[in-house]
Design a protein around this nucleic acid. Structure first.
Lengths: 250, 250
DNA sequence: AGCTCATGTAAAAGCCGTTCACATGAGCTG
DNA sequence: CAGCTCATGTGAACGGCTTTTACATGAGCT
C-alpha cells in the first residue's frame, strides 16, 4: 500500500516515491534564493537526489514546473486575500486595508511564489489554468472594491469598482516590486513598505471621498493596527487623521 | 582618421570597428523581443557578426552588458522625466501628471530599457554607477513631489514629499509592470494604462487635498481654490476631464 | 618598415535543457 | 508465486550557452 511506499522511498531506492512534490519544493527554495531566472532544472533534480532526466517524467519542461509553481502561488494568494478580506468584517474600509497588507505580506513571505507569479516572465495568458487562477485571485480584490464602491458617499459620483480594484492592485504590486523585495528593498525609505502602502491606499480612498479615519466613533470596532499615536483623542478636520495617514513619515 | 575607419569597418574586416555599440544595440533588440532573461550573449555576438568570444573584449560578462543597458536606460529615463516635468510648467499639477504619463510612455516605448532597469533582477545596489543613475532619475520625481507638497492647502497637514514621490513611483511602476507591457497588457481593462494611471494619480492628489478637479461642479474633499502659483497663476489648467478622474471608465 | 597593443578568432571546459534507449520494480493478474 | 506491464528513474548523447586561453590580425605610432 502507499504508506509503506512512502516510508521506504523516503530513505532511498530506485524510485523516489514523491519526486514531483520534491521537485516543486526544491524549485521553490531555489527560486527564493536566486530568482526564477537563476533557478535551474538540473539543480532541482540534484537537490531531490535524482538524475537530470528524471524531472521530465513529471514536467514537460522547465517552464511547466515554473507554471505549476505560479499556479500554486495564485491559489495560496487567493486564499490569503480571501482570509484577509473576511467578507468585509468588521467594516469595509478596515478589511480593505487588511487585504493590502496581506498582499505585501505574501510578496514578502513567499518570494518564490511571488517571483514565479509576477516576475518570471511566464506567459500567463498562454496557460488557461494559470490565467484562471490569476483571475480568481484578482476577483477577491475586485469584490472588495465593489463593496467599497457601494459605500460611496451620497453626492459624490460612484467610482467604478473595477477601476478601484486595478488601482489598488497596481499600488500593492508597485510597492511590493520596488520596495519590498530583493535588492531594491535596501533603498533607504522613510517608512516601511507596509506603512507606505497603507498610507497610499488611505490617501487614495480619501480622494474618492471615503471616510478613512477609523476612530472608535466611526464604523470600525477595531483599533488602528499600525499607528500607536493614532489612539490619542482626535479632533479630525475634514481631510485627515491627526498627522494624516503619513503620521510616521520622517 | 576615424571616419575612414567607420566606412571600412561598416562593410567588413577583421576588426569590427564599433563592436561595443553594436552589441548594445543588438542586445537592446533581443531584450525587447524576448526579455532580459531570454537574451543571450552569444546571440548578440552573432547578430553583430563576430565570434562568441569577441564580446568579452568589451564587457566583463553578460551581466555587465545588461548593467550597461540599464545604466543607459536610467539616463534616458531621467532625461524624459526631466523634460516632462519642465520645471513645473505651466502649473505644478499639470506637470506632475505629465511626469506620470512620461513614465508610462517610457515603459511602453523602451521595453528593453525598462526591462533591464526594473525586471532583469540586476543587483542595482551592487553597482554604484547604476545606483547613482537610478537615484538621479528618482530625484526628478522627488523634486516634483517637493514642489507639489509646498502647495499643500492651508489647514491640511503638509505631506512629506519623499512619501509622495514613493507613492507616485509605486503607482507608475505598478501600472507599467502589470498592465502596460508583455502578456499582462492583454488583460481586459476598462481603460488604457495611461488613463488608469492618470485617474489613480488624480484621486491620490485629491486625497491629499490638492485641487485636481478640472470641472466646475461638485467634488468630495476639496477645499477652496488654492492660491495661485508663483509664476503661472493657473490652478485650474485647461483640458478638463468631464465626469471626474474616471470620466472615461466604462 | 616595423612594433605594439587593442581587438578579433578558434578551441576547449563546464554547465544546462532535452531526448532516447534502456533499467527497475510496484502492482496487477492468473 | 510467476510473470507481465507500465510508471518512473538512469546514463549517454546532442546542441547551445558562458567563459577562459592561446593565438592571429592589423591600426596607429615611431
Amino acid at each position: 500500500m502507499s504508506w509503506r511506499k512512502e516510508e521506504r522511498r523516503a530513505e532511498r531506492g530506485y524510485h523516489h516515491g514523491n519526486l514531483k512534490e520534491a521537485l516543486l519544493q526544491a524549485a521553490l527554495g531555489l527560486i527564493a534564493e536566486k530568482g526564477a531566472a537563476g533557478f535551474t532544472f538540473a539543480d532541482a533534480a540534484r537537490m531531490a537526489g535524482v538524475s537530470a532526466a528524471a524531472p521530465y517524467r513529471h514536467f514537460r519542461d522547465r517552464d511547466e514546473l515554473l507554471s505549476s509553481i505560479a499556479q500554486r502561488g495564485f491559489e495560496q494568494f487567493e486564499g490569503r486575500l480571501t482570509a484577509a478580506w473576511d467578507d468585509g468584517r468588521p467594516d469595509t474600509v478596515t478589511a480593505f486595508e487588511r487585504v493590502g497588507r496581506a498582499y505585501l505580506a505574501f510578496a514578502r513571505e513567499e518570494p518564490a511564489f511571488y517571483n514565479a507569479m509576477f516576475e518570471s516572465g511566464l506567459p500567463v495568458d498562454a496557460n488557461p489554468a494559470l490565467q484562471a487562477a490569476s483571475e480568481r485571485a484578482f476577483n477577491i480584490i475586485r469584490a472588495a472594491a465593489e463593496r467599497l464602491a457601494a459605500l460611496a458617499p451620497p453626492g459624490a459620483p460612484r467610482p467604478p469598482a473595477m477601476m478601484m480594484a486595478l488601482h489598488i492592485w497596481s499600488m500593492a504590486h508597485g510597492v511590493a516590486s520596488l520596495f519590498s523585495r530583493g535588492d531594491a528593498a535596501r533603498r533607504k525609505l522613510p517608512m516601511s513598505p507596509d506603512e507606505l502602502l497603507e498610507a497610499e491606499v488611505l490617501i487614495y480612498l480619501r480622494g474618492l471621498g471615503f471616510p478613512t479615519d477609523r476612530r472608535p466613533s466611526a464604523k470600525s470596532a477595531e483599533p488602528p493596527p499600525v499607528p500607536p499615536e493614532a489612539s490619542s483623542g482626535s479632533s479630525v478636520p475634514p481631510g485627515g487623521t491627526p498627522g494624516g495617514p503619513w503620521g510616521k513619515a520622517k
